[in-house]
Design a protein around this nucleic acid. Sequence first.
RNA 1: GACCCGUUCGUCUAUCGGUUAGGACUCCAGGUUUUCAUCCUGGCAAGAAGGGUUCGACUCCCUUACGGGUCGCCA
Length: 443
Amino acid sequence: MSVRTRFAPSPTGYLHVGGARTALFNWLFARNLGGTFILRVEDTDEARNTDEAKQAIFDGMAWLGLDWDEGPGKGGDYGPYFQSERKSIYDTWFQKLVDAGRVYEDGGAWRFRFERKPVTMNDLVCGEVTIDYRDESNTPDMVVKRSDGSYVFHFVNVVDDLEMKITHVIRGEDHLMNTPKHLQLIEAFGGTAPQYAHIPLILNPDGSKMSKRDAGAAVGDYPRQGFLPGAVVNFIALLGWSSKTDEEIFTMDQLVARFSLENVNRAPARFDFEKCKWVNQQHLIPMTVEDFVAAAKPFVEATGLPVPENFGAVAAAVKDKVRLLEEVPAAVDFLLCDAFTYDPETVEKVRGNASAKELLASLAAAFNAIPEWSADAAKSTLGDVAKSAGAKPGQLMFPLRVALSGRAHGPDLGDILNLLGKERCTARVMKFVVILQPCSGGL
RNA sequence: GACCCGUUCGUCUAUCGGUUAGGACUCCAGGUUUUCAUCCUGGCAAGAAGGGUUCGACUCCCUUACGGGUCGCCA
């Protein structure tokens, strides 16, 4: 029997990382076993559903690379895949409950009568869990059909899982206590229950529940910050799942090959944004220069910085130095225009070097005299200037970096020299000599 | 409050009775790089607490504490 999993979001807000990870685990599980992954939109709450939210789910799934085999836009043998279009199916199943005498009217709504007995589930992650339904105070009979004739989540969710022949339900731990309700319904229908796997929730760094407003919660924010989809998938997979090895950077294909529910743990995980960024960098590094440049370009354009002919070379110079694509503009701005700022602390550091100003002054003159500019020529000139002053070349390289870029960190000095060219380098060194004047006050 | 799940470095985690409790992020130090970063090496840092069971417990059991979840005509 082939595996069938589903992701069943309700379009009432933006797709958040918790939901994305639920979708991911269902997707990985199905792909790992050659099964079928289904997307079903649970849009029964008309008051809260929005088209934007629906689109956010589709967009988010597409961005993450989680394609579905059956569902909206795809079709399938068990449609429709929007619950709002399945009313007649639900009516049929509801009638079974009526015929079996398992529902009774209460204030216009219909309640499902639970069997008063202990219900045990065998969760693939949580193990054997028993809830005692003899305790009615804790488990009142649930409404399955509202007084307005619409059906509630528990009912439609169970009916659809049965109708769609779902074999494995992988969902957030917040549904663990709902499972006995679902099991009771399935039993009343005479159906076969799918296997359940309840995965731990994702928490904020401070341990509180992550909700839509929290940093990092909305999947839609990730592209804008310059995360790669593969990196986000990789990181959220690590929240609650482990390969049981020392490796933690994986491509989609590797995750598919390694995923199993046995390696999902039960404790909730906190979201560590720092590590998420690091994972992103690990995915940025193996990119080709062409891909990186193409990915970085929109971020630079968005800031209004000029994007010259040699932008590819500029972006390539910072390829392995940024964690997010969003960092690229600030990392290359001094290569794209002359109006960049000098970091006061770094300038102060250079000022502390007594001979720096003099050496840079000589260097500016020497640069200007270079007949054929190249990074090598410039470096060799730098070596000569340093040597004639009795200094080591290394002592001049940091001041030169600051003169050219205004900061302590950045691309390789050779790249900077090449990218900037003779005129700009000379001019910037001269300007920086002036900035170094103790009384100039001009930063 | 009742019920359920959980608890290893600050964070993500490995360990399925016997380990100097391992790895990763972060941070710090040193090395490489004539510069920055990468990289390499090293360092800081953990079994919530108390009882059992056992020759031996992070691992099994109980209690307590703490955290999370659920108790809707929301999903």
